[in-house]
Design a protein around this nucleic acid. Structure first.
Lengths: 237, 237
DNA sequence: ACCTGAACACCGTTCAAGT
DNA sequence: ACCTGAACACCGTTCAAGT
């Protein structure tokens, strides 16, 4: 079957898929990211991705070695979206901006954070990102050991916050407030007195937004790193 | 329906499934946790879990409403494994121990962290855990607003660290060192100078262990929270 | 009340075959 | 070089049926 298709080929080749670019890895990755953003990562299958690209699922294997490779590629592409720290600012300003950018990327692509710990093979954008962060600490006067400490502490906080933020059933906005209200009603005050207090007197305040906690913790960590750096610098000087 | 069950009951009931306990939710959850620990969460299917329990997959639906409920139940069971902060110690000591316990649980069950942000419906163990952590801050002299800050910052760090730790291709031990050596060889020093430096002069040191970074960052955050608490307390007093 | 068998609508991936 | 169709070995979940 399929041999009926042969016959005379026109001298000038017809665009095989008219009006549609040929498939390539970048197009596969960006479409996969869009699908994950729109419908959630659990709905992203090779078959759905193929459909979206006007191609059979099996064609994807020409551009991606398997689904794990697809997911790793998506993560690396997201690292490309993060603003790199710039070198003509203080380490603190540069890394504050970078951290805000990381969080913005994770808000845009909520499925990504949960995938990052299984993405063992770091791609080039990921490596470049980490290299620039390390460089920012080193050029800011951090010793090598203190750079390792600082890198770990800062990124633990930043990625951890994004994770907490996602897990929270409330955030801000009206529907969230309504939901928090319902939750409060179901919460046995006797059994969980402190949760009850937090919900009743803090979370249900008019202007409440969990998102604002990010800045507090970020400043807390950056200030603490600055102090840690200075104290060891004094010790050595 | 169900009225067919009436009739004469034998005086002594026969064990229905000989030598095997009857299925119940707790047994389903603990078996699922064990399977996830042993073979990884991606291998945990309703069918495999049924097999392990000597039952068809469909029987599980009598004890769990669907797979999401199963996963939520597993997460809540893990919260039961975490040592609660004890009230007769200082907030700092109590929360240090609790944080170490959280990390230990996440090391024992590496699949759990990635699931927590999708586990929207917190179970009773989860609620109790959070309530006790909040209570520890409150009784330690933190204002309600500062408790919210502290809770967010501390747990962002703790869960974030566990996440980073899992993502890292090296940790400690001999095979890890060998792997780091290979990675270093493949790392273009010109393109990633700071990554190269960190690997060559820090990670490949004989006694290196990323795990030790946990304590540094934990102390950093706890100390910073103590300072933040005291400075607002002064402001108010 | 709890368990099962068959079925449905999906998965990721392989392989040989097509152009 | 890239794409496809058929097939394999799986999924989660439903439903009617059994005890």
């Amino acid at each position: 079957m399929g041999s009926e298709e042969r016959g005379e080929m026109p001298a000038r080749r017809v665009q095989r898929t008219e009006g549609r670019e040929r498939l390539n890895r970048a197009r596969v990755l960006e479409t996969a990211i869009r699908l994950a953003d729109e419908d959630g990562i659990e709905k992203l299958s090779m078959r759905r991705l193929g459909d979206e690209l006007g191609v059979e699922a099996m064609s994807l294997y020409n551009h991606v070695s398997n689904k794990e490779d697809l997911l790793n590629g998506m993560i690396d592409a997201l690292y490309g979206e993060i603003d790199l720290p710039v070198h003509d600012e203080s380490w603190k300003t540069a890394l504050r901006k970078r951290s805000v950018s990381v969080r913005a990327v994770l808000l845009r692509h909520p499925w990504a954070n949960g995938l990052m710990d299984s993405a063992t093979h770091a791609g080039p954008s990921t490596m470049r990102h980490h290299d620039r962060v390390l460089g920012t600490f080193r050029n800011g006067g951090f010793s090598l050991a203190m750079t390792a400490h600082a890198f770990s502490a800062l990124d633990s906080y930043v990625y951890g916050f994004a994770k907490q933020e996602k897990a929270l059933p409330f955030d801000s906005g009206e529907e969230a407030a309504a939901m928090a209200h319902v939750m409060l009603g179901q919460l046995p005050a006797g059994e969980y007195p402190y949760l009850h207090e937090l919900m009743a007197k803090h979370v249900l305040r008019p202007g409440y937004s969990y998102a604002e906690e990010f800045a507090f913790g970020l400043e807390l960590v950056l200030d603490a790193l600055e102090r840690a750096k200075d104290s060891t610098a004094e010790g050595k000087a």
